[in-house]
């Protein structure tokens, strides 16, 4: 467990632009080597320059986020000054296996919080539980002070906590525009009787369409507007999913492996979008395996192993955290294929 300290925000912004800076700590270096295939070194110069500009713009949000986390203890279950999501004693069993067993967890408002951990550590299951897609065996959790325990997934989404999925779920036989417009909440035309009378919803629909077009513009999908989403590439689908989620106007967005299966160039653009969302005030929780990505954009990292939170802290804290290194190296070295086996 590392000592409690926080880094100044500008240092973190540096991390964002130069992701591959090797940490001073020897153990940390080993960790990066172990987990990083070094795919981020490939993007071309133009993009690098654009990215630098974006990063400069992002600095403000990033520093604000870092500031809000100043003085927060880097230990599992630490209290945050302004938590948007609070979970207590959430557990889920699959047969004999306790997939999730979180005693206390808080997510600070306005930050990018990453959940990391080896395969089978319970990150995605935890996502499913808090977003209402799976029912826990025990536990309570609240979002913006509202108790979510036992609430159905769609109600949770309407409250402003929206998630995406590990395997992108583009609605194949809907057009890109329809995909995004679906995200709008409170649509009068979604009620049976008003739906029959177009005048009762056409005004609202036009507003929604305008906003959807703005989102498509922002995520550079305008050229796909009237195409079926099924014709999109994998990366475009990731963008679409994010645009669709933004249409709900969420205050917290949960991204399940947003970079999985995306080429390095698009990874950078996705990262830019994620940081921009944070800078606009949206809280982001993401599950990700790419350590470079995690270290470069997260304001706070929560590490899972065997269903429990074993460490929390800023990227710097996590890099030097012995428990994290053990969790990763222990499982990945000794038992590469089996995720259920306990680490030494």
């Amino acid at each position: 467990m590392s000592d409690e300290h926080s880094r100044p925000g500008d240092h973190r912004a540096d991390d964002a632009t130069v992701p591959a800076v090797p940490p001073a700590d020897g153990n940390g270096a080993e960790l990066t080597e172990q987990l990083d295939p070094g795919q981020l070194g490939e993007h071309d110069e133009v993009e690098e320059r654009e990215e630098a500009l974006e990063a400069a713009a992002a600095m403000k949000g990033s520093s604000a986020a870092a500031k809000s986390l100043e003085g927060v203890a880097a230990e599992p279950g630490s209290r945050k000054p302004d938590p948007i999501l609070v979970a207590d004693d959430v557990s889920r069993r699959f047969g004999g296996l306790k997939a999730v067993d979180v005693s206390h967890l808080e997510v600070q408002r306005g930050t990018i919080t990453a959940l990391i951990g080896p395969n089978g550590a319970g990150k995605s299951t935890f996502f499913n539980l808090v977003s209402g897609f799976d029912k826990p065996n025990t536990g309570t959790w609240s979002f913006k002070g509202t108790d979510l325990t036992g609430m159905s997934a769609y109600k949770i989404a309407r409250l402003g906590m929206v998630r995406t999925f590990q395997l992108t779920k583009a609605l194949m036989r809907l057009t890109t525009l329809e995909n995004v417009m679906l995200g709008a909440t409170g649509q009068r035309g979604e009620h049976f009787l008003p739906a029959i009378f177009k005048p009762s919803w056409s005004g609202q629909e036009a507003d929604n369409e305008k906003r959807a077009d703005e989102l498509l513009e922002r995520f550079k999908l305008t050229h796909m507007r009237d195409e079926f989403a099924g014709t999109m590439s994998g990366g475009q689908r990731k963008l679409l999913e994010m645009a669709r989620a933004m249409m709900v106007r969420p205050s917290l967005i949960m991204l399940d492996e947003p970079m999985a299966g995306v080429n390095p160039a698009l990874t950078q653009s996705l990262l830019g979008h994620i940081q921009a969302l944070r800078d606009e005030g949206t809280t982001i929780v993401l599950v990700e395996h790419d350590m470079d990505v995690i270290m470069s954009i997260s304001d706070w990292i929560i590490c899972f192993a065997e269903g429990k939170v074993i460490a929390e802290g800023t990227p710097a804290d996590i890099r030097s955290n012995q428990a994290v290194i053990d969790a990763y190296l222990g499982t990945s070295r000794a038992l590469p294929a089996d995720e259920k086996e306990p680490s030494p």
């Binding site: 977003s131 897609f133 997934a153 769609y154 929206v162 998630r163 995406t164 779920k169 609605l171 709900v248």
Partner: peptide
């Protein structure tokens, strides 16, 4: 699942 995740 996607529809549900969008509040439907």
């Amino acid at each position: 699942l996607a529809a549900r995740s969008l509040g439907k």
